[in-house]
């Protein structure tokens, strides 16, 4: 493992890109699944709980989910290694530094954005994934674990919603740089392909960010205010 990670700077970046893109694909699936929360309440409850059961019991999805956990760990560990190495290669920094003018802030702060996302992930997993797996959840009408009601009640807390929004904004910026950067790391050099990928990356980022932010707000407004 150590020689694997000790490999070249370019190879480490390829691993970052691969794991990052895989996680992005997961986000698309995740968002698609979550969109079921927007259905009329009765239907949403049944369908979402069924979906949750499917996602936790299907063998293929189970395998994929282990790849997913591994990706998250690899992505995080690699980023730590890369950041530490970069710190050394940066050579101590400047007494007077205005380099912020020549690049986007989020491209320079992927580590911080990533840390926010990681912290969010821990809270998120604890509140839903852990609860679903190991907590004592009520059953719904069809006899499935009623994750839906847990979700709905969680987003009754305005601060919780705000926390989610902040995390998703961080995720949005992380993706805004990350997805396109991943394609660059793979070597998408012809300018037409590069422009197309930029368009796709940015579009996808906006879609994911808006989608993820919309759901907690929707739940809060629909189930707790109205």
């Amino acid at each position: 493992m150590s020689t694997f990670l000790e490999n070249s700077t370019l190879f480490r970046k390829v691993l970052m890109a691969l794991t990052g893109l895989f996680l992005s694909v997961f986000l698309i699936v995740h968002l698609a699944g979550n969109l079921q929360l927007l259905l009329p309440p009765d239907q949403a409850s049944i369908q979402f709980n069924q979906y949750s059961k499917f996602m936790t019991s299907n063998l293929l999805i189970k395998i994929v989910s282990y790849v997913l956990y591994l990706s998250i760990i690899l992505h995080a560990v690699l980023s730590l290694i890369i950041t530490l190495k970069n710190k050394k290669s940066a050579g101590g920094g400047y007494a007077y530094d205005k380099r912020a003018k020549v690049s986007n802030w989020y491209s320079r702060n992927m580590g911080i954005l990533g840390t926010i996302i990681l912290l969010f992930l821990i809270v998120h997993m604890k509140d839903f994934w852990y609860e679903y797996k190991f907590g004592s959840l009520p059953m719904d009408a069809e006899g499935n674990k009623d994750l839906f009601s847990i979700v709905v009640s969680a987003f009754g807390e305005p601060l919780y919603v705000v926390g989610y929004i902040i995390a998703f904004v961080a995720l949005g910026y992380h993706l805004l740089h990350g997805i396109f950067s991943a394609f660059k790391t793979f070597g998408a050099y012809p300018s037409r392909i590069s422009s197309l990928l930029y368009f796709i990356s940015t579009g996808l980022t906006i879609l994911l960010t808006v989608g993820f932010i919309f759901i907690p707000i929707f739940i809060y407004l629909k189930y707790h205010i109205a």
Partner: peptide, 14 residues
């Protein structure tokens, strides 16, 4: 390039 101790490219485009 790696041996010389140069860092990773983060594509900040600076």
């Amino acid at each position: 390039m790696d041996e010389e101790g140069f860092g990773h490219c983060t594509n900040t485009l600076a």
